[in-house]
Design a protein around this nucleic acid. Structure first.
Lengths: 238, 238
DNA sequence: GCGAAAACTATACGGCGTGAAGTTTCTGCA
DNA sequence: TGCAGAAACTTCACGCCGTATAGTTTTCGC
């Protein structure tokens, strides 16, 4: 039994060290931007040698990928709960809640936002497939819930839609259709456009391109969300 | 007269070398991403020492800033001509042309797009003020022309707007008001939102986040532009 | 033609990711 | 309990990066 206890211990230590590496990396990112994520800096902070980290992550990019996964997961969680917070029969409120949470998260975690949506780190190249697209699909599912809630109102504005299920990633479709059996492909397209529309304003703000044009990004964002709700055909004062 | 000719020669050579440095930097960026812009690589390509470049740019970031300025200028030019290509009395066509050009430019010059709108290069920190915001305002002016063309239709949808000129950057206002004397602040807000809305979809596509969700980003973009035009209250088949 | 200035090179420092080899510590089994 | 082997970690090395300093060559203006 000492054996199994020891194996458990070894594995636990390993998991703890792995977690600590990621934590330190996130701290470095928070204080110095994604560019501050370097193996040497992490090792320094932990009182180790840089090469020791190679026992936990085969390469620096693997570490960054793991971080992206974690951070994206947090974002997806936040969006999920934000979307579900407002009553299901009030799509406008759901959208406002979701959008506000998205922007707030991005402004609170600008480095995380960059990590997910930008060039995260010097020379980092995201793996094709893997964890990040998975998290993206989770976020997408979350915004699809918004589109589904708004669809009864928005449907008439999308009569001529030519979208089919084959226009979307199979993995995404596989997640969406069970969750929203009656939703047509056009609504998924709406969800993606909705997401992108908010992403545009938020990413311009996070990267500082909005500050140089407007002094009140918040007002601009509220206006955008209001017009977005209106453009979905949702009756006002719902 | 040899003197003035010589001075001219010296300055001309200097200008040529400066231009060559930037050209090589752009080539490196095109082939290896923004991260490939290194003084040593440029110097290698030019048969010089890395330090020689310091005679032309005080620091690597200064070089990147100059590149951002150039590239952003090209984009702004392309957008200007695209917007002006369609007849002034057909705002929908102008928007379609502008939007299509924006996306096409971004997909043709993904590295340039990242250079402008992302973390351009390892550890690069954009200067506050300077050339980039200037170029951003040019692009903003260009999109404002779209908003101005659409404003007669869109105005009724922005009745309750609370925007004032003080919500915008003074330099931007100074450029806009002479060019569009009758335009209210709300239309500038509309312009910024319009720009951001397209930026969202394009940046997600350039950074590869759309590929993992949809197989036909082009269709999605066309749908977005169509709905955008509709949401501006522009009558169809104009 | 000559003094000065500009352009450029040489050398060096510290930081980066990463590979190979060596050392210590821990684990599981006889 | 002792010991083979694996896992964790260190040391050393290489080539990359930006950049500071000092020295050298070329060119210009008088």
């Amino acid at each position: 039994m000492a054996g199994t206890a020891s194996r458990g211990r070894r594995e636990r230590l390993r998991a703890e060290t792995t977690a600590e590496i990621k934590d330190v990396a996130l701290e470095l990112m928070a204080s110095g931007g994604p560019g501050a994520i370097t193996l040497r800096a992490i090792a320094r902070e932990m009182g180790m040698t840089a090469n020791a980290i190679y026992g936990y992550f085969a390469t620096r990019d693997d570490l960054v990928t793991a971080l992206v996964n974690d951070v994206y997961g947090e974002l997806a969680d936040a969006l999920d709960t934000a979307g579900a917070k407002a009553p299901a029969n009030d799509p406008a409120a759901r959208i406002r809640s979701w959008a506000g949470t998205f922007r707030a998260w991005a402004l609170d975690n600008p480095e995380g936002f960059r990590l997910i949506y930008g060039d995260p780190v010097p020379g980092y190249e995201a793996p094709t497939g893997g964890a990040a697209p998975e998290a993206a699909r989770r976020a997408c599912l979350s915004v699809t819930a918004l589109a589904a809630a708004a669809w009864p109102h928005a449907e008439r504005l999308h009569k001529g839609s030519e979208f089919t299920w084959s226009d979307f990633d199979p993995d995404l479709v596989e997640k969406i259709r069970p969750a929203f059996p009656d939703l047509p492909p056009a609504a998924v397209a709406l969800a993606l456009r909705l997401w992108a529309r908010l992403h545009g304003l938020v990413s311009l703000e996070v990267y500082g391109h909005l500050h140089t044009q407007t002094t009140d990004p918040d007002k601009l964002f509220r206006e955008e969300v209001a017009q977005l709700v209106r453009s979905l055909g949702i009756p006002p004062l719902s």
